[in-house]
Structures are given as structure tokens and as C-alpha cells.
Simulated scan of single mutants.
Amino acid sequence: MVSKIIALSQGNREYVTDMRRYFHMHPESSLQEFETCKRIQKELTEMGVPFKVVNDIGVIAEIEGAKPGKTVALRGDIDALEITEKTGVPYASTVPGKMHACGHDAHTAMLLGAAKVLWAMKDEFEGTVRLIFQPAEELIAGAKIMIEAGCLEGVDNIFGIHVASAYKVGQVDCTPGPRMASADMMTITVNGVSGHGARPDQCIDAVVITAAIAMNLQTIVSREYSPLDPTVVTIGQMQAGTRANIIANKGTLELSIRSFSPEIRAGLIESIKRVATGTAQALRGTVEFKLTQGTPPTINHEGPTEIARAAAKEIFGEDCLVEREKQTGSEDFAYYSERIPGAMAFIGSAVPGPYVPHHNELFDIDENALPGGMALYVTYALKALAE
């Protein structure tokens, strides 16, 4: 069956390349993927694949096999970024100030290609494959929207692919365990008592308290958590005071908090609150907290990961698997794998020449990665259904 999947994927090389270039030329920001969504609907309609639309910006499609069985989901994100493209390629963005600088155009195209292959093979497998064309990954909002729309109802496991400019075409990174960090944000508001700069003894100085909290927070990662468990507490913004001769009564700190386990994630929040509260009290002030919870850590579950690794070897060869350290960036695929077993694979798409990172105005992919990614989607689905 794998040889047929590979043949069908290679046979759709031109289709998936054309689709990727269309989406690349017509990027849309997160939560504004209206035309992208319409084009996905058009392609699925022409294939005959049934689907439902979510808020005019997402699509959930479903391909049923010859007999009932498990349900496996495949996810591809579809949104672009607010970046002015400078690649100079013939298929460059036609929308000023926006481009697909993270490869989501490729994900959309590969998932459409997978739909074509799965539709052609629907009489050869048992069960159902659900295709999730997800908006707003860059805002860490799209997965929640799709989950609320029922995309995981009845699903046994889920698989996602992300192109990776760090790897050559034919290389695949799908490693079990934590792969990307949780990402939370916190605002700490410091309350003091203002007064004249000539009489600080009559005041409670929010500048001093804010600075002290900033310094004391540095001890959390270095002294409370194991160096073998990567954690990040970043103070990205600090503000206090209005002019030289006024003792400030307000200060704020904006924090980014990242970790790789639910337990450490929860512990960091409590540690920050304890240190900030204790520091403020020691200096006669008070603090307030506003926590904005982002994604949980992205964790590849053992079962789906083994299926994906086996599928990758069949598509790309026995030596295709590579492994990199887990990344402190975040991915809202985590919301899916938090609820059901899942795995996410990074497939090589590096363009020959100097390395260009994602989210860069020169970002592009080697389109030779597209048929392999399409085949990996399909092979994973059929292997997972047969488990």
C-alpha cells in the first residue's frame, strides 16, 4: 500500500506545488483566512470530499473508508504573517505586508494533496480520516476554535506536520515526549504611594519595588528548578514612574513564562506570585497579577509517535529520522495532544544555500518536500487506522 501512496503522491506533485504557490501568493492574517478557506472548500468540492466550514476561516473535512472503524485526524494550519516578503520568487506574496513566512501554505497544500490521495484510496481502508484546516495558529487561537467546533469528537488520535528550514528534504524529526514549550504571559502591577521626590520617606516607592521584583524573579529558574528541566521566565517589559521628582505609585512588569511539563508550568506561576508578593511586602507595597494562559507544552505521545516514525521510514528511507533538542517556542497543536493522543513531525524543507529561519522575509521552502509530506500524512492515517 505504501508504494501506491508514494506513486499517487508523486502523481500529484504538480497539483500540490500549484496549490502551495497559490496560497503563498495570497496570504491572509490569523482570523482573516476567508479567501483561503473558500479555496480549500473549492478544492474539496471538486474532489467530492464532504466538509463543514468553521466561522468562515476553518474547514473540517471527512473521508470515510469502506467500513466503519477508528477515526484519525490530520491537521494543517493555514494562516500567514505580517511580514513584507523579499524573496523575489515568481510566486511571491501579492499582498503588501503579508507573507507565508512559516510554511503554512505548504501545510495547507499537503493536506489538500493528502485528501486527493485518501479519496482515491477510500475503498481500501476501514475507518475515517478527518482533515482539519486550522486558522490562527500564529495567534495560538485556531486550535481552540476548531476544538469548540467539534473537530476532535470521536477522534482516536491526531497527527500534524510542520515544514522545517533547519532540515534537508528527506529528513524527519518526530521524537516522543515534550517537543515545544508551554507559553504563558503574566502582568504584575506594583502598588505604592506617591509623593515628592525630596521626601521618599513619606512614600512607598513603586520604582524600587518593581526593580527588586525584577531582580528577585531571576532566582526562580536558577534556584528552584532543575537545570535538567528547561524553563524560561523572561521580563520583556518593565515600567514605573513619570518624572524625576515624583515618587512613583505604580509599576508594571510583563512576563513570558515557558516550560515543558504541566507540573513545572503550574509551579512557575506559584513561584512568581510568591516571590513578587514577598518582595513587595518587604518594601511595604502590594502587587496584583493578571495571568494570560497560552498553549500547554506540545507533547508527542508514544503510540502516535511510533506510527509516525515508522511511516516516515517507509516514505523517506530508514535513515531519515533526525532529532533536535526540544524548542522553547510554542505551537497550538498542543491543545489537540492535550486532549487525545497525538504527534507532530517536522519535515525537512531547507532551500539550498545559507540558512534562513522561519518568520524571516527571505523564508522559502524546497518544494521537493511537498510530495513526501503529502505521503507522510496519508501513510500515518492508514497505519493509525489499522492499529
Rank of each mutant, 00 (worst) to 15 (best):
A206P: 09
S256M: 10
G192D: 12
Q239M: 01
T210Y: 00
T210F: 05
L228Y: 12
I213V: 10
N216M: 08
I204A: 04
A198K: 14
L217K: 08
M238T: 08
F260T: 04
I213W: 02
I272R: 03
Y225W: 08
A266H: 09
T231D: 10
D229G: 07
F260S: 06
I209S: 03
V207H: 06
T277K: 09
S222I: 11
V193M: 13
D201L: 12
N249P: 14
S226G: 02
A206R: 06
A244V: 11
G251E: 09
I220W: 00
Q239R: 02
T231Q: 07
E270H: 13
T279G: 02
V232H: 05
A214Q: 06
A214T: 09
V208E: 15
S222H: 12
V232N: 05
G236T: 04
V193Q: 14
V208I: 15
Q239D: 02
K273G: 12
A206E: 03
A240H: 03
I246H: 03
P200S: 12
A248N: 04
Q239V: 02
A244P: 07
R243G: 05
E270F: 10
T279N: 02
V207R: 02
T252K: 00
I272D: 01
V207Q: 06
S259P: 12
S222D: 11
R274M: 15
R199Y: 13
V233K: 01
A206I: 05
A240T: 04
S226A: 04
L228M: 08
R274W: 14
P227L: 04
E224I: 00
E270A: 10
A211S: 13
P262L: 02
R223P: 01
P200M: 11
T231N: 06
I220D: 03
E263Q: 07
A240P: 08
A282S: 15
I235W: 01
A266V: 11
G195C: 14
V232C: 10
S194L: 15
I264W: 01
A280S: 10
L217Q: 14
D201I: 09
T242P: 01
L268P: 03
I272G: 05
S222G: 11
P200D: 12
I209H: 02
Q218F: 09
G251N: 11
I204C: 03
L255M: 12
A280L: 12
E270L: 11
Q281D: 15
A240S: 08
S259F: 04
A266Y: 10
G241E: 05
I235A: 02
G197P: 07
V233T: 04
A276Y: 08
V232Q: 07
A276Q: 14
F260C: 07
A212T: 04
G195Q: 13
I247H: 12
I264Q: 03
